[in-house]
Amino acid sequence: MTIFIKGKDAFSFAFKQFTDTVYRVALHNTANFSDAEDVTQEAFIRLLETNKPFRDGEHLKAWLIRVTINLCRDKMKKSSRETLVENVVEYKSGEDKTDVLEAVKSLPENYRNAVYLHYYEGYTAKEIGRILDAKENTVLSWLRRGREALRKELDGGFDDE
């Protein structure tokens, strides 16, 4: 028998468990802290508004991550109507990056989210594919290209060996 959580229960569960996750995803996909805070709050408003029943915590977490990424996308589009900012942080190529977080943030959207979800949250490529709506192989290639870009940008890189 599957027990669903929804509404207020889902909200308070998510608030205790996933606030930092939502905030981290938001920070990866927006230009500054205040945008990230706005998005985090908005994501929780969406959670309050939805009537969707969640199977378990993981289902809820994946849903929150997806919503957060979409909200960030809207936010970034709004903040630059004329030209879409594909990278939240602009870097001149060849410039030395000392901040590993900034380096990840400078990756294209799909790469950076795949890198975050894999290396920090520990999701597999298949699970990331479900969250980001892509095929497993596509996610694997995002991760590979993300690693390649990071190896160029950073003294070190993310290789798994």
């Binding site: 905030y23 805070e37 977080l101 290396y119 920090y120 070190g156 993310f158 290789d159």
Partner: peptide, 14 residues
């Protein structure tokens, strides 16, 4: 490397 990244993200809290 990725451990630095994980540490950096760990430090992000709402």
């Amino acid at each position: 490397n990725k451990n630095d990244y994980i540490n950096a993200v760990d430090n992000i809290t709402a």
